[in-house]
Amino acid sequence: MSGTMNTDLGGDGYNFAFLDEQTKRMIRRTLLKALSIPGYQVPFGGREMPLASGWGTGGLQVTASVLGPNDRLKVIDQGADDTTNAVSIRRFFHTVANVAVTESTEQATIIQTRHRVPEAPLKEGQILVYQVPEPEPLRRLIPRESETRKMHAYAEYGTMQVTLYEDIARFGRIARTYDYPAIVNGRFLMSPSPIPKFDNPKIANNPAMQFWGAGREKRIYAVPPYTTAHSLDFDDHPFEVQSWKGCCALCGSTMSYLDEVITDDKGSRMFVCSDTDFCTTHQAKAAAQTKVVGEHS
């Protein structure tokens, strides 16, 4: 990436936030239409970015189009601010937009994420941008775009219901653990991107603005604030999220999504928060209250 940015043949530098103004306007119009039709995938003229497609180019274009000099940007991957691609994307914006960056969910005005929704509740005015590899929730069932587009046009989502019910017949439960489809505002079936289903409830009725950017597939969609997002389920098999027996080994949280860390070659492992900012904040609070952190599992 930095190699591309250092290319000097162009003479002068790049435009603020890399994209040219016409591209930003096109994406901004797309973002407004996306808010107006919650959950509907708006096609947009995605550009080729100096980051591999599949690595967050959709999120990158959304962020580049909303970002301004007064923003504070947070970038996470797997919930962590220090994962390689998060570091790389944060560096990109620091270079091309000279924007302030933060690891604090609370202080960020824009959060670009891959695979997680932050644990800390978001506030009005905050913008959450998800990176999306495959925006079409029906794609694994129906590979053809011309067919899935019709299914969305007429809200024909029976195929998805049948697929989930086949899971129940076979495994006794819906065997989907991430990228769990939801109906937005009672109308459009939406892929929440590959976040664990643990995070699905956070999408619904969130005070913040949420956008999904799929660069390779050239689609943008949104869930406005205070909008319903119902994770598909059945009366006799209601939607449920992951839970863990223990708590985070570092901060003691029992309400966060935990990553399993293998600590040796004898099968020992521990569980820690995937959301690094949440974990650090929680540890600091716990330390301040000088309470003893709970036992490890």
């Binding site: 103004e21 407004l32 808010l35 909303v66 000099p69 603005m209 604030p225």
Partner: peptide, 15 residues
């Protein structure tokens, strides 16, 4: 920067 600032207001108004 003016386009960006106004767009953010439009985004808030739509959201």
């Amino acid at each position: 920067f003016d386009s960006q600032a106004v767009f953010r207001d439009l985004l808030v108004a739509t959201a």
